[in-house]
């Protein structure tokens, strides 16, 4: 039997407040730790030590950075479009908590069970494009605008193979409920039945989160950070928070759709879920120091002329095999 927060707290609104508290606490710790992990992983891959000063293994380094960011001045550029400029971090940040509430982290425990959870996740993750465009256009800075244009083109190009590869899973599972989809993988995870879809999904998800090798929207060495060039202090911190939270979101989705969610031997489900999510995040960090950045037109061509046709064929093949079985 599934238990959700409404069962525990009795009222929807109390449950919502409790969910917000739990998710916010998790996400804050998560992004502080992920930034630390990113720095440690990249340092080790380059035979450096990374942060070591504050706390054991430098664990408190990002915590100190966050406090420092809080004390930094917030500057609004004179020529910026103030409304768009101020709205952008909020637009990017706002949907994250709601999206996280949709994930079933273990078999009998969810924040709330939605039959169309998958559609909600996909719809609200693509809302970040709006925030990126507001940031890029609102800043009135050429670097920001270039970064925003690239980011949007890339996001819409990789959205399509992502949706098509998800569709193959939906065909197999016959459900849009994330818990149902994970439930059906108690025997065989879908990554074995849909290896191509899993691969396409992970590549597209890396691109959707603007991670290397698809990080040309940010491209530190050419665009000085891209769409968030003009942001200082905590506004900049919120873009970072959103970036690392969206890594958890796409990796969580990949875990549920392809790796069987919470299923695994011995350990409790919730532990398995997070092991899988952080393993995928580690792979993403590994990507960053393995592959060189793509050129922009190569990136678009790769999506539209390789990933999309492959995803369409994969979907057709899945539909055919389902009929033959």
């Amino acid at each position: 039997m599934v238990r959700d927060f409404t069962d525990i707290f009795g009222s929807t609104w109390l449950a919502a407040a409790a969910s917000v508290a739990v998710i916010m606490a998790f996400l804050s710790v998560n992004s502080l730790m992920l930034i630390w992990m990113e720095r440690k992983v990249s340092a080790r891959m380059q035979r450096r030590l990374g942060p070591t000063e504050h706390g054991p293994f430098g664990l408190l380094q990002t915590f100190c950075d966050a406090i420092k960011l809080l004390g930094k001045e917030l500057i609004t550029p004179r020529h910026a479009s103030t409304k768009l400029y101020l709205a952008a971090p909020i637009l990017i940040f706002a949907p994250i908590i709601a999206i996280c509430s949709l994930f079933p982290v273990s078999g009998n425990w969810v924040f709330r069970d939605y039959d169309i959870a998958l559609v909600l996740v996909l719809a609200f993750t693509s809302m970040s494009i709006l925030g990126i465009f507001a940031a890029g256009w609102g800043s009135n800075n050429k670097y920001s605008l270039l970064g925003a244009i690239r980011s949007i083109l890339q996001n819409i190009a990789y959205e399509v193979p992502l949706l098509l590869s998800v569709m193959a899973v939906v065909l197999l599972a016959g459900s849009l409920n994330l818990r149902d989809i994970a439930m059906q993988q108690s025997g065989i995870p879908y990554v074995l039945l849909q290896p191509l879809a899993a691969l396409i999904f992970f590549v597209a998800a890396t691109a959707e989160t603007n991670r290397a090798p698809f990080d040309i929207p940010e491209a530190e060495s050419e665009l000085i950070g891209g769409f968030h060039t003009e942001y200082s202090g905590m506004r900049f911190g919120m873009f970072f928070f959103a970036e690392y939270s969206s890594m958890v979101i796409v990796c969580g989705l990949a875990t549920i759709l392809f790796l069987g969610g919470w299923h695994g031997p011995v350990l409790p489900g919730i532990v398995w879920f997070f092991i899988k999510v952080y393993a995928l995040i580690f792979v993403m960090m590994w990507f960053r120091w393995t592959f060189p950045r793509l050129r922009f037109d190569q990136l678009l061509k790769f999506s539209w002329l390789v990933l999309v046709p492959l995803a369409v064929l994969n979907l057709l093949a899945t539909a055919l095999v389902l009929k033959l079985l």
């Binding site: 917000v20 809080l70 004390g71 917030l74 911190g237």
Partner: peptide, 27 residues
């Protein structure tokens, strides 16, 4: 409503980190 409440909470929490520096940051 549950989902909507969480969206609203997202907006409200997004304002927090921008308001705090107003009191402690240099200008």
């Amino acid at each position: 409503g549950f989902f909507g409440a969480l969206l609203l909470a997202g907006v409200l929490l997004a304002v927090g980190p921008v308001v705090i520096p107003l009191f402690i940051s240099p200008r």
